[in-house]
Design a protein around this nucleic acid. Sequence first.
DNA 1: TTTTGCACTTAACCTAGATTAAGAAGTGTT
DNA 2: AACACTTCTTAATCTAGGTTAAGTGCAAAA
Lengths: 191, 191
Amino acid sequence: MPLIIENIEKHVTLSPEEKELFLSKTEIKHYKAKSILLNSGEICKQSYFVNSGVLRSFNINDNIVEQVLNFASEGWWIADMYSLISKKPGNLFIEVIEDAELVLLSKENQEQLYSEIPKLERFFRILTENSLVAHQERLMDNLSLSAEERFEKFCKRYPNLIQRIPQKQIASYIGVTPEFFSKMKAKLLRK
Amino acid sequence: MPLIIENIEKHVTLSPEEKELFLSKTEIKHYKAKSILLNSGEICKQSYFVNSGVLRSFNINDNIVEQVLNFASEGWWIADMYSLISKKPGNLFIEVIEDAELVLLSKENQEQLYSEIPKLERFFRILTENSLVAHQERLMDNLSLSAEERFEKFCKRYPNLIQRIPQKQIASYIGVTPEFFSKMKAKLLRK
DNA sequence: TTTTGCACTTAACCTAGATTAAGAAGTGTT
DNA sequence: AACACTTCTTAATCTAGGTTAAGTGCAAAA
C-alpha cells in the first residue's frame, strides 16, 4: 500500500476504486539533493508528498538572509500554501535537502478530486487544521520560549531530522544565527 | 442578510434552505467586556463568529505572562483550534475585550453540518487554509522583522483594531514587553 | 593534488529588547 | 470624593542573541 494512501486513510476511508482514481491523478518523481522545486516569484501549482528524502521551504529577506519556514520528510506534505491557494506568485523557495522520491499532486487535479471524491475535501481540511495548530504552537513558542528551549523542543519533536539537515538550517528554523546556534549547542553538550 | 451568511457566501453559495438549516444550528449570544468564554484547561466545544465587538485568545506561560495569540472583531471566527479538533483540554483563554454579539457554533453541530451540507466542509477548509497562510506569514515576520516593522505591519493590516485594544495586548501580539512598546511608540510619534 | 567553497566554530564586541522600579494618568467602585 | 486598580510612561540597568572577523575541517571540482 503506497505511503500516501496510508496517510490519507489515517483520516478518511477510501474504496479500492477511489484509491486508484486518486493515484491516477498523481505522479511520482525523483529529485537529487539541492534541486529547487519552486522559486520565489513563481506560482506554486503542485503539492509534494514525501515518500523518501527531506525538503525544506524558505524565503530570502532583503535578498540576503535565508529564513526556513518548514521541513518535510517521509509522510509529510510540502507546498507554498499562499501561492497554491491564491494562484499568485509566492515568495517561498522549495528545495530538496536529501535525495527524494515525491508524489506530485497538481492543484488542478486536487480540485477535480474534491468533486469526484468529496471525502478528500475532508481529508485536506483535517490536514490543514493540523498544520494550522502546529504553526500556532510554533508561533507561541517563538514569542515566549528562549532559543535553547525552542531547540530542545525541536529535538524532541523531530529527533530523526537533526542528523539529516545542515545545522545552519535548523538554526534558521528556530530563529537564531548559525553562530549563536553553534555556541548554544556547545553549551548544551558541556552539560 | 446575517453577517455570518455573507461571510460564508464569499467562498461557497448556499440555497435559502441551506442558509436556514445553517442558522438553525447556531445561537446568538451577547457578552460584556471581560467575560471569559474559555479557560485554559477546558475543552473548547464551540467556534465563535463575531457580529460585533472584539475578542482575543491568549495563554499564560509559567502562570505569569499573558501571550496573545489572536484578536477577532466583526466578521472573524475565533476558537481554540487545538482543543476544538483534538477534543482535549487546551491552554488558551478566550476573552471579550469589547462588548460583543457572537454567533456560537458547537463542534457537534459543525460536524453534522458537514454531512448535511458538504459545501460547508469546503467553506471551513478554505477558512482554515487562509488562517494557516496568515499564521505562516506572521511566523516568518516574527523571525525576520524588527519589533518596529512588526508594529507597522500590524497597524496597516488592522488599522481599526488599534483604538479598540489595550496597548499592552498589542505589545504581546507582536512579541514585545509593554514597556518597550511604549518606548517604541513614543519614538515613532517623534518622527 | 591542489584549490575552491561551504559548513561549522570561536571569540570579541555590540544592540534590540527585557527587567526593574517608580511615577502619572485614567477608570470604575463605594 | 476617595479608593483601589489598571494602563501607560520614563529611565536606569542588564542580557540574550546578533555582528564581525578569523580560523578549521572537509568534500567536490578541476
